[in-house]
Design a protein around this nucleic acid. Structure first.
Length: 438
DNA sequence: TCTGGGGTCCTAGGACCC
DNA sequence: TCTGGGGTCCTAGGACCC
């Protein structure tokens, strides 16, 4: 089977540009939540030397000097673009795994390398024509090598955005001989130094190493890497999303929080957000962990990372119970005298909602049913009126702790050109959960 | 002044059991 | 001083990813 990775170029920056064609040729960056860090850069912005992940205040001058367009992130819009890109990709491939908001693994029948390259070019053109988003495509026999091929395609203009890792083993070794092993997906700084200390410096070294030997000093992770590097697939496309194992809602504050009531409000808000995700996925949680931390970039201030866990018995998806549990967690770790910078809620021990309803007649079943109907009604209203229109009072009205988002692109509904296009006859996408990150 | 958010997988070690 | 040999389950924490 031939596999491929299609990965959108500078995805969030490309979305901003697609929304506003006047940005063509202009350097564009997109900021993280709270307008804190740079999370996406157009090629022009990269050329200016703006680093990925840089705190915005450090590059603000540079941006002003060079007329960089700066946008707050707008994940709802990027999610819409993502869905359209994935729809086009799904039409082009035999199998698809939507891996993240801006990339998908594709599966095709085997074919000669030259045909694979032509196929990659066709797909790339189709996505650009129908969504305005540029993608790079790497094709290879294993997903690890697809990732590598994609990275090579992105780094080399002459490749035209498409790269095939040769199916012939000798040609593959020649290609990967100069490539450092830490360019591989899954090889971070820790694993890279361990591999180097055993004489594995390049991707070709890894492909030539005995997998069993890798296992002895780099565990099953190392063994799989070695196999995939030599063209033996260890992980294949996953078309059905695995059930979620945890849910996190957290955010940095716009200003330091010292007041307990304010912190409690923020935790209630995150509990309610996490509860909404639970219900969207039809899950219940059996444990909530509330946490808060001070500003780690201020060594002059007292530092603390505090958390407390609360069991949820029976497991629940009810926003009110989760908000109450978050308040209980806060009571477990609260201590005055700190300037809190960030807080959030983890939900763990997730299981399908239908399996966990109380079985004993008369024991809480009525209350559970009433709670469920209230949440269903709230979700239905918010689906109609807009997210968060109906919400818990405990999550606050003022929300003074909220971070800033000052550079959102205005979406004009009077400009027909900019309206997202809905396609009624598109193919059904696999039920893969798209994760919003990057 | 200002420094993101949301995940998964693997391993080691302890509790507990027979 | 010496004091079995497994097995499973759970948890904490590291490593890595987008």
């Amino acid at each position: 089977m031939l596999r491929a990775l299609a990965d959108c170029n500078n995805f969030y920056a490309s979305c901003e540009r697609a929304l506003n064609p006047a940005l063509e040729g202009v350097p564009v960056i997109v900021l993280s939540n709270n307008d804190g860090c740079v999370v996406a850069r157009s090629s022009e912005a990269k050329a200016l030397g703006i680093p990925m992940g840089a705190p915005f205040f450090q590059v603000r001058r540079l941006c002003e000097t060079h007329g960089v367009h700066v946008a707050s992130s707008n994940f709802a819009v990027y999610g819409d673009f993502s869905a359209r890109v994935m729809e086009v990709l799904a039409e082009q491939a035999r199998d698809i795994e939507v891996y993240s908001i801006d990339e998908a693994f594709l599966g095709f029948p085997d074919m000669p390398d030259a045909e694979a390259e032509a196929l990659g070019r066709r797909i790339r053109e189709e996505v650009r024509a129908r969504t305005g988003i540029g993608v790079s495509i790497g094709l290879a026999p294993t997903l690890l090598l697809c990732k590598l091929a994609n990275e090579l395609a992105k780094g080399d203009r002459a490749s035209g955005g498409v790269r095939v890792i040769p199916s012939d083993p000798a040609a593959r070794l020649a290609l990967t001989r100069p490539l450092a092993v830490d360019r591989l997906w899954g090889v971070g700084p820790g694993l890279a130094s361990r591999l180097r200390s055993h004489g594995i410096v390049t991707v070709a070294d890894l492909a030539e190493a005995e997998p069993a030997r890798l296992r002895s000093f780099a565990g099953v992770v190392g063994e799989r890497l070695a196999l995939e590097a030599r063209g033996v697939p260890c992980r294949d496309l996953v078309e059905e999303a695995a059930p979620r194992r945890s849910i996190l809602s957290s955010r940095s504050f716009g200003h330091p929080v010292t007041d307990r009531a304010e912190l409690e409000e923020a935790l209630a808000y995150h509990a309610a957000q996490a509860a909404r995700k639970l219900r969207e996925d039809g899950l219940v949680a059996s444990e909530l962990v509330g946490f808060a931390r001070t500003n780690k970039h201020r060594p002059d201030e007292p530092q603390r990372r505090a958390e407390a866990a609360v069991r949820l018995d029976p497991p629940t998806q009810d926003a009110r119970r989760l908000a109450a549990a978050a308040a209980q967690a806060l009571a477990g770790f609260w201590e005055p005298g700190f300037r809190w910078k960030k807080a959030g809620v983890f939900l763990l021990g997730l299981s399908p909602a239908d399996r966990s309803q109380p079985m004993l007649p008369g024991l809480g079943a009525g209350e559970s049913e009433a709670r469920r109907r209230l949440m269903t009604a709230m979700d239905a209203l918010n689906a109609k009126l807009g997210r968060d229109v109906v919400r818990l009072a405990s999550t606050g009205l003022e929300r003074a702790w909220k971070g800033k988002s000052e550079r959102l692109t205005e979406l004009s509904t009077t400009d027909a050109e900019r309206l997202p296009v809905a396609k009624a006859d598109g193919p059904r996408l696999p039920r893969t959960r798209i994760r919003f990150h990057e």
